[in-house]
């Protein structure tokens, strides 16, 4: 395997696995569309942070994104619960509005030479992530994209390992969790912040639209296959890794954007699982 291919694939896998782990809980809580909304509405955060620091490579961007991500969930909640607007309408209003503001900021304040343009925001460019290598002394230690997502991945892993009980009880029965005195608001805040940060980290590579596919499709497939939560988490990671590997090589073969092929492969695996399960059911009866 060529070094550049390896680096690109490593980035893709780290992103996909991070998204899958969080996505499992989005699917179980039926808040996938909130994840979708977050992935779009972090754009103004990114744009503002980019203007302030004029690079992708900053803590500003993470903070900006996390703030906008949490802000999005708060506005959706406010519209839905306080103004009694139906939830899907609240989501639709909030994220399109914030996303549009983000686009305006980008078009007005950045010039054509910058890395941040609308195409990049929407679709990402996974196959160019290997260009930006980090070299310490004489050793190549990876790409910048990888080192941006990797710490986030580690935080997600730790959060899910230690917060597993909290996340599962809140996903199943939030009121009951509250009645036990569990700090539901705090866990939700960390969770939504992690979703925001992860979508931002995935922006460059897969873009704002396709990241939703990574958040939803592998977990939804795993949900079909198993009825144990731990297995659902593990299977969704394995599915994400598999679709990255297959998708990446297919993208070289037919020369299209890797991120879209990865999602297409993911979706094909979902359909496959769906048919197998239904055929099994029919044969049993």
């Amino acid at each position: 395997m060529e070094l550049n291919d390896f680096l690109t694939l490593l980035t893709a896998i780290t992103i996909a696995v991070s998204c899958s782990l969080l996505g499992c809980f989005l699917v179980l809580r039926k808040t996938v569309m909130v994840g979708d909304a977050i992935s779009h509405s972090v754009l103004p955060g990114i744009a503002i942070a980019y203007l302030l620091s004029s690079s992708f490579n900053s803590v500003f961007m993470l903070i900006g994104a996390a703030i906008f991500g949490v802000f999005t969930t708060l506005i959706i909640d406010f519209f839905h619960k306080k103004l009694k607007l139906q939830e899907d309408a609240s989501i639709g209003i909030t994220f399109t509005w914030l996303f549009a503001i983000g686009i305006i900021i980008i078009t007005l304040f950045t010039n054509s030479n910058t890395d941040l343009d609308q195409d990049c925001v929407l679709f990402g460019e996974l196959s160019s992530t290997f260009l930006d290598k980090i070299i310490v002394g004489e050793y190549l230690i990876g790409t910048r994209s990888f080192w941006m997502i990797f710490p986030v991945f580690l935080i997600i892993l730790v959060f899910i390992l230690f917060g597993y009980k909290g996340l599962s009880i809140i996903s199943f029965n939030e009121d009951y969790a509250k009645s036990l005195g569990i700090n539901v608001g705090f866990i939700n805040l960390i969770f939504m912040s992690l979703v925001s940060v992860t979508t931002v980290m995935s922006f460059e590579s897969v873009g704002a639209i396709l990241v939703v596919g990574l958040l939803v499709i592998p977990p939804a497939t795993a949900y079909l296959i198993t009825n144990k939560l731990k297995r659902m988490l593990i299977y969704s990671c394995l599915l994400a890794i598999t679709s990255c590997i297959i998708g990446f090589y297919l993208s070289i073969l037919i020369d299209v954007t890797a991120s879209s092929i990865i999602i297409v492969v993911s979706g094909a695996m979902f359909l496959f699982a769906f048919f197998i399960i239904n055929i099994k059911k029919m044969l049993n009866i």
């Binding site: 179980l28 009980k165 909290g166 199943f172 009121d175 036990l180 198993t226």
Partner: peptide, 28 residues
């Protein structure tokens, strides 16, 4: 008020009764 399609067994749900603020980040 809950979705019974949640991936959990009877034992998993009953064990939730043992979750507390103090042991949330520890094993049962």
């Amino acid at each position: 008020t809950v979705d019974w399609n949640f991936p959990a067994s009877v034992e998993d749900v009953v064990l939730m009764g043992r979750y507390k603020k103090g042991n949330l980040f520890r094993r049962l």
